[in-house]
């Protein structure tokens, strides 16, 4: 998956413009709630065929943490 596609998917998930999805952005500045956490799990499974454990997800603090896991 290209970096552009990853940004597009995360922008859709967090309901923000793609320009807001930058690596250093803190997740606390986005809508990082339980619904979007479940959405991220679904996104990983559906788009990347990766099972993202909830325990791992809880360690994410920035957009970069997500992007690293998408590789």
């Amino acid at each position: 998956m290209t970096d552009e596609k990853k940004i597009e998917l995360l922008a859709e998930l967090f309901e923000v413009e793609e320009s807001a999805i930058i690596p250093e952005k803190k997740l606390s500045e986005l809508k990082w709630d339980s619904m979007n956490m479940l959405g991220l799990i679904a996104l990983f499974k559906g788009e990347l065929d990766i099972i993202l454990p909830a325990a791992k997800l809880r360690t994410f603090t920035t957009v970069n943490d997500i992007l690293q896991e998408m590789k």
Partner: peptide, 13 residues
Amino acid sequence: AHSFPVKTVSMKS
């Protein structure tokens, strides 16, 4: 019981 917001729904799921 997959739980996900509709914005991440896919035909596969």
